[in-house]
Design a protein around this nucleic acid. Structure first.
Lengths: 164, 164
DNA sequence: TATTGTTATACTCTATAACTATA
DNA sequence: TATAGTTATAGAGTATAACAATA
């Protein structure tokens, strides 16, 4: 993600935006959006991605890349199809994403012994090392999210959304 | 959105994907993602967009376009900057989005009487008519979302996420 | 100097089709 | 025939810079 490159400048002043939204003279009405769960899910998701990308900018790992590394590490030898279905990523997009991670030396595609069409995915030593660092940063990101919601609401949201 | 054009063919078999995820022989472990609110927010948001786009495909209105039409209708005469800040859309992107809506005859940019730099935004008669239709379809979409979560959890989620 | 709106660039992501090689 | 993986394309969205007009 291109944003991962900007590290020092806080370009998206979300708090300022929130202030303006409340302080600007003619208060803007969200209309029916105020009653739409879909709208607020989108707003929170945008914040999550932006915050995640900034938090992991030093190691240049996007949310999608992180999820791929985590699932490969937890299921060594799985195929691309399995990975794609699990994470809801298109096969075509996953192929390019993995190509990128492979070029960075973070994972390998080995021939599957059981099925000649498949690749067995696994992290390299470098991949495992980077993932360890990524997990630390991602945990910090998640803590920030928990703090924004409060522990009780955070737990409640996690359990409710996981059921989806 | 490109997906808005496909109306008949149910290309993304989310239910089948869910079945595969649970039924495929080697059960895939989400690892640490299972404890990440950010991950599940993303998954729900993807479903929301896909479902919204399909539901409104007959009138070719994307989630972003819908939110823009709703807020203009509820705040006739507001400026592009106000609209951009309110919805968290980049000014640059909003300019093109509005250009598109204007070409479709759904809204107008009038010169602002107060500030020569600003445009005062308003819907045309066609815009108001299309918005009425869009609101009906969007309400159906939201009902489906409510049904997926259950009324209690839906209400709970709406109030929690709105606080963000 | 700062703000409003615009155009442009580069990259990510999604949806889709078409292709190969294997099963 | 169906599946696994690949490449390519089109469109949407995001991040950013630079510009003209106006304040």
């Amino acid at each position: 993600m291109s944003v991962a490159r900007r590290q020092s400048k806080p370009v998206i002043p979300l708090r300022k935006a929130a202030q303006l939204r409340q302080a600007s003279p003619p208060l803007i009405d969200l209309g029916v959006l105020n009653e739409r769960l879909g709208y607020f899910v989108r707003r929170v998701q945008v914040w999550v991605f932006q915050h995640f990308i900034r938090r992991l900018s030093s190691i240049d790992v996007s949310p999608a890349q992180f999820s791929v590394l985590v699932v490969i590490a937890a299921n060594t030898g799985l195929s691309q199809s399995q990975l794609a279905v699990t994470l809801g990523i298109e096969r075509a997009r996953l192929a390019r994403l993995l190509h990128h991670l492979e070029r960075r030396g973070l994972m390998q595609r080995l021939p599957s012994s059981a099925d000649g069409r498949r690749h067995a995915l696994r992290l390299t030593r470098d991949g495992r090392k980077l993932l360890a660092r990524a997990k630390t940063l991602a945990a910090q990101h998640e803590s920030a999210l928990k703090e924004k919601f409060g522990s009780d609401r955070y737990r409640l949201l996690l359990e409710a959304l996981r059921e989806f």
